[in-house]
């Protein structure tokens, strides 16, 4: 055991080193470490949140797609119905038109037949007159024989 002033000197050095460490080393490094810990914790939290958000978005997208599909199917159904309606209406219109045209044609035919018949009757009357006059070799007085002729015309 032999002590000397080295002891005092080393105590001063040690105290200085402790002081230096307390004020200039420990707080700065510790601060950096704690800040980084905070950052990492925040990063992990953000990742977790992003993960949850992604899940939500996926579910939302799936729902939207389902909705869109349903809507499209509805639209197609509606279109089909409308097309059927249009076709039915067109068919009905066509049938009506055909009927109308047919009726018109029949009317015309009937009136034309009527006219033809009347004309024929007149012509036959005239022909009969001519024929008869030829047979009789003289003019038949239409007035005198009118009754006879009219009777003849109705008989034809």
């Amino acid at each position: 055991m032999e002590f000397n002033a080295t002891l005092i000197g080393e105590m001063i050095v040690f105290a200085f080193l402790i002081w230096f460490s307390v004020h200039f080393i420990w707080p700065h490094i510790n601060k950096a470490i704690e800040e980084r810990q905070l950052k990492i914790a925040e990063g992990l939290g953000a990742a977790e949140r992003a993960h949850a958000e992604l899940k939500d978005a996926d579910a939302k997208v799936a729902g939207e797609i389902r909705q869109a599909r349903k809507q499209a199917a509805e639209i197609i159904d509606k279109a089909q119905q409308q097309a059927n309606q249009i076709i039915d209406k067109a068919r009905a219109d066509a049938v009506a038109e055909v009927d109308r045209q047919k009726a018109l044609a029949q009317d015309e035919i009937a009136s034309m037949a009527q006219r033809a018949r009347a004309e024929l009757r007149e012509r036959v009357g005239a022909l009969a007159m001519q024929g008869a006059s030829k047979i009789v070799q003289r003019e038949i007085d239409p007035a005198a024989h009118k009754a006879l002729l009219d009777q003849l015309a109705t008989e034809i």
């Binding site: 080193l17 200039f24 700065h28 601060k31």
Partner: peptide, 15 residues
């Protein structure tokens, strides 16, 4: 020791 740790502490970043 002091210089070594002090230099690192001075430039310590949280990154």
């Amino acid at each position: 020791f002091s210089l070594w740790f002090w230099l690192k502490a001075r430039k310590a970043t949280a990154g």
